[in-house]
Design a protein around this nucleic acid. Structure first.
Lengths: 119, 119
DNA sequence: CAGAATCCAACGGGATACTG
DNA sequence: CAGTATCCCGTTGGATTCTG
């Protein structure tokens, strides 16, 4: 059994983290993924659920996430047209990741935002 | 025992995720935290370990992380001067988060970098 | 060694208006 | 409803040079 050089192991992790941060770059992608891990949603629902995102950014990020096979886009032929976004099996492997992030955020809300930003 | 409205619960998580993404914004912060969770490091070591980061960004991000009490800066009076960065107890609560991200990245490296993003 | 300063390019992201 | 098209600004981030 080989011992792994601890420095090497760290480097590997750093590279892996770069990959992920590259895939989920920007302010919104993690939140979008988290939403869709929770349940499939339509464009307008995402717009409301992902607080503060603009339509432009939502479109853009959805397109990128779809290109990376993390989500699926399904056009329903209702009238008027509606579009449903759904997490893929691949994307669903990110569920734990989003859960850990959300949990940390919940536990440390006060320290993060500090004094302000809450009435 | 109260039932939590599932939509409400999702919204809470989204907000929490926004907090975290705000705290760890940019390409490098998560990697820096991961490094320092692994072991304390000097500036120049971080520069080598966090692949590809520039000195300017490292300085900037270290300052921000310090302001948020996630890391500590310690000046050693060697000559020439050396500076050691160390994770705080508070910052160390992010260790699991960085580990989960790194693990996902490692497991899915092939698909991310892939051959040519899948035919 | 550990940065600060300067310059500059590129991207992120908001607001608004428009389309099928 | 689900976008697309512009416009426009602030930030990010790289390269380089300078300092104690």
């Amino acid at each position: 059994m080989n011992h792994i050089n601890p420095v090497k192991e760290c480097s590997q992790k750093i590279i892996a983290i770069h990959d992920v941060m590259d895939l989920l770059n920007g302010k919104w992608k993690v939140a979008i993924i988290a939403c869709l891990c929770f349940e499939k949603m339509r464009y307008s629902e995402l717009l409301k659920t992902v607080n503060g995102i603009s339509g432009r950014m939502l479109s853009r990020d959805l397109k990128e996430l779809e290109m990376n096979h993390l989500i699926k886009r399904k056009v329903l032929d209702t009238k008027p047209i509606t579009v449903e976004y759904e997490i893929t099996d691949y994307g669903a492997t990110l569920k734990n990741l989003t859960a850990v992030i959300a949990e940390w955020g919940l536990n440390h809300r006060d320290r993060i935002k500090g004094t302000v930003t809450l009435p």
